[in-house]
């Protein structure tokens, strides 16, 4: 097979572009390449990348999960509520968050797999429901220690040091915990999806569900699992988010969904996989992170961020839909 420029653009376009970006930023601003800065880029994208990984799992199984952003924000509020208002321990907060995530994943699965609602619509509905629910316990206010509750009393709890460490601690003073978590989760899911028979079945369902079912796969079970995995990963993202900002911020979830979906879609194009893949999603998230970090260093106004993200998303869509061979 010859490497036509078109082929090259599809296979390596994003990586070449990423290398080019790094080079440009490194020349323009030498501080860009410092190890510390590189890790802060990773820290900045870790949560979005996690959510993107979740979306990717559902995409692999031929579905879509738009509710990850709303779920992360919801979980972030739940963590703060559990710590500050209920004065809970680190462990109980984490368990609560993961439990909520699994519950939401099951809810999505019931709507999509059991009731047959189209995935985009069902998860969009779930997103709006969560966005409303997260505001209810505090009447729409953010949660910080000393919060005055709706009944007039003052919340007694605080963010525990252990919990905060999840978002802020740096292992060996260099590696932020969220980056570590991302690495572990992404590597585990990548192993499962790329190298085990379970992953093979997920991909088979996404490619031709009928063929997978006739080959004997319990396809409904796998689709349920995809949504539960996605929601669980998203709730891990929500825990890290709460730990990083150290309070329950009602507006923390803004834009998370779009960023995550964008990362997953950009990931399609990485290395010419032309299909959802975990590694690609992480690269996609890092790509956007590098771009934003570099632009910030070059003193570009922050409100260019969405423009850049939108342009990158549309570029990725153009590559996936436009350059790649048309698929049925």
């Amino acid at each position: 097979m010859t490497l036509s420029p078109r082929r090259l653009a599809i296979d390596y376009g994003l990586l070449i572009l990423l290398a080019g970006l790094v080079a440009v930023f490194a020349v323009a601003e030498p501080a860009f390449l410092r190890v510390n800065n590189l890790f802060s880029i990773l820290q900045a994208v870790a949560i979005v990348a996690l959510l993107g990984v979740g979306v990717t799992v559902t995409m692999i199984a031929g579905g879509f999960d738009l509710s990850v952003g709303g779920l992360a924000a919801f979980v972030q509020m739940a963590a703060a509520y559990s710590l500050v208002v209920l004065d809970g321990s680190t462990g109980s907060a984490i368990l609560l968050c993961l439990g909520l995530g699994i519950l939401v994943g099951l809810g999505n699965a019931v709507l999509i797999v059991r009731l047959g609602i189209p995935d985009l619509l069902a998860t969009l509905g779930m997103l709006f429901l969560l966005a409303g629910l997260q505001l209810v316990p505090t009447g729409g206010r953010s949660i910080a220690p000393g919060l005055i509750l709706l009944d007039g009393s003052t919340a007694q709890g605080t963010f525990t040091d252990g919990f905060l460490a999840l978002g802020r601690h740096r292992v060996w003073d260099i590696l932020p915990v969220p980056v570590l978590v991302l690495a572990v989760v992404a590597a585990a899911l990548w192993l499962v999806m790329a190298w085990t028979r379970f992953g093979r079945v997920f991909y088979a369902i996404g490619g031709n569900e009928l063929a997978a079912r006739l080959a004997g796969a319990p396809t409904r079970l796998y689709r349920v699992a995809a949504y539960v995995i996605s929601a669980t990963v998203a709730s891990i993202g929500g825990i890290l988010l709460a730990a990083r900002i150290g309070r329950g911020d009602v507006s923390a979830g803004n834009g998370l969904m779009l960023d995550a979906v964008a990362a997953a879609l950009i990931g399609h194009a990485v290395l010419g996989a032309n299909r959802p893949n975990i590694l690609g999603t992480v690269v996609g998230a890092v790509f956007v992170g590098v771009l934003l970090n570099g632009l910030t260093m070059l003193n570009a106004p922050y409100y260019l961020q969405d423009l850049v993200k939108g342009a990158v998303l549309i570029g990725a869509l153009a590559v996936t839909y436009g350059l790649a061979p048309r698929r049925a």
Binding site: R197, V201, Y203, G206, G207, A212, A215
Partner: peptide
């Protein structure tokens, strides 16, 4: 036709993988 997005090898193993 099998799963068009997977490799030939993966398609050959599809039955054993799925069951």
């Amino acid at each position: 036709i099998g799963v068009p997005t997977l490799s030939v090898a993966a398609n050959l193993l599809l039955d054993s993988v799925c069951t």
